[in-house]
Amino acid sequence: EVTIKANLIFANGSTQTAEFKGTFEKATSEAYAYADTSKKDNGEYTVDVADKGYTLNIKFAG
């Protein structure tokens, strides 16, 4: 089991951190699914992958 950390960075400057656990593939998939659901309210996003994929910096356009 691994933990994927997602740092969500919103257009207004606020941030949120979420953690997803499971296999690398499952946790990563859940992090992207979470970003997709947040996209409806926060606009399109880009992802900067860090820490060999264990940290995702997800920046929303607003």
Rank of each mutant, 00 (worst) to 15 (best):
A50V: 13
L8Y: 13
A50P: 03
A61R: 11
E30Y: 07
E1N: 11
S38M: 15
T15C: 13
F10G: 02
E1Q: 13
A18K: 15
S29W: 11
G62F: 08
S38Y: 15
N57S: 05
N7D: 02
A6M: 14
A50W: 09
Y34K: 04
D48A: 11
A6Q: 02
V47N: 01
E30I: 05
A33D: 09
T3G: 03
A18F: 14
A35L: 10
V2A: 06
S38Q: 15
T46D: 07
Y45R: 00
A18D: 04
N57Q: 06
G22Y: 01
K59T: 14
S38C: 15
T17I: 11
A6V: 15
G62L: 07
T3W: 06
E1C: 14
K5A: 05
G53H: 02
Y45T: 01
A31S: 03
V49A: 07
T55N: 04
A27E: 00
F20L: 02
S29D: 10
T28Q: 09
I4P: 00
G62R: 07
A61G: 13
A61T: 13
N42K: 08
F60L: 02
A11M: 09
F20A: 01
Y45H: 02
A35I: 10
T17L: 09
K39N: 06
K26Y: 11
A50M: 13
A61N: 12
E1K: 10
V2N: 04
F20Q: 01
T37V: 14
N57M: 07
A35P: 01
V49R: 07
I4R: 00
S14L: 14
E30P: 02
F60E: 01
T55L: 09
G43R: 03
K39M: 12
D36V: 05
A31L: 06
T37L: 15
K21F: 13
N12L: 04
T46G: 04
T46W: 10
K59R: 13
T15H: 10
T46I: 11
D51P: 01
N7I: 15
F20E: 01
F10A: 03
T17E: 09
L56H: 03
V2L: 06
A6N: 00
N7E: 05
I9W: 09
E25P: 06
F60W: 05
K21C: 11
A27Y: 00
T37E: 15
Q16E: 14
K52Y: 14
I58R: 00
A6S: 04
Q16V: 14
T28Y: 13
T17G: 06
S14A: 13
G62P: 10
A61C: 13
D41S: 11
F24I: 09
T3M: 08
E44A: 11
A11V: 09
V2G: 03
A50E: 12
E44G: 09
V2T: 06
G22N: 06
D36Y: 05
A6C: 15
G62V: 09
F10P: 00
E25A: 11
Y32Q: 04
T17Y: 12
N12P: 03
A31I: 06
N7L: 11
S38W: 15
N57E: 06
K59P: 01
Y32S: 02
Y45F: 07
A50N: 08
T55A: 04
D48S: 13
T23M: 07
D36L: 06
E1A: 10
D36S: 06
T23K: 06
S38P: 02
L8Q: 01
L56G: 01
D48Q: 13
I9G: 03
D48M: 12
N42T: 05
N12H: 06
T55Q: 07
T15L: 10
K5Q: 08
A6E: 00
A11L: 08
V49C: 08
V2E: 05
V2K: 05
D48H: 12
S14K: 14
L56D: 02
E30H: 07
K40W: 10
Q16G: 07
F60K: 00
T28L: 15
T17R: 09
K39H: 05
G53W: 02
N57H: 08
A6T: 08
A6H: 00
F10H: 04
D48C: 14
I58H: 00
K40N: 10
G13A: 05
T15M: 13
T17S: 13
T23W: 06
E44Y: 09
F20D: 00
T28R: 09
E44F: 09
Y32D: 02
S14D: 13
D41R: 10
Y34N: 03
K39C: 10
K39E: 05
I58N: 00
L8G: 00
I9V: 10
S29A: 15
E44P: 14
G62N: 10
E19T: 12
K52I: 05
K40V: 12
K5C: 11
G43S: 05
F10T: 03
G62Y: 08
S29Q: 15
T3E: 04
T23H: 07
F20V: 01
I4M: 03
F24Y: 13
L8H: 01
Y54M: 11
S29E: 14
T15Y: 11
A50F: 11
I9E: 07
Q16H: 13
D41Y: 13
V2R: 05
D48R: 08
A18H: 14
Q16S: 11
T15D: 04
G43P: 02
S38D: 04
T46Y: 10
T55W: 04
G53L: 02
K40S: 11
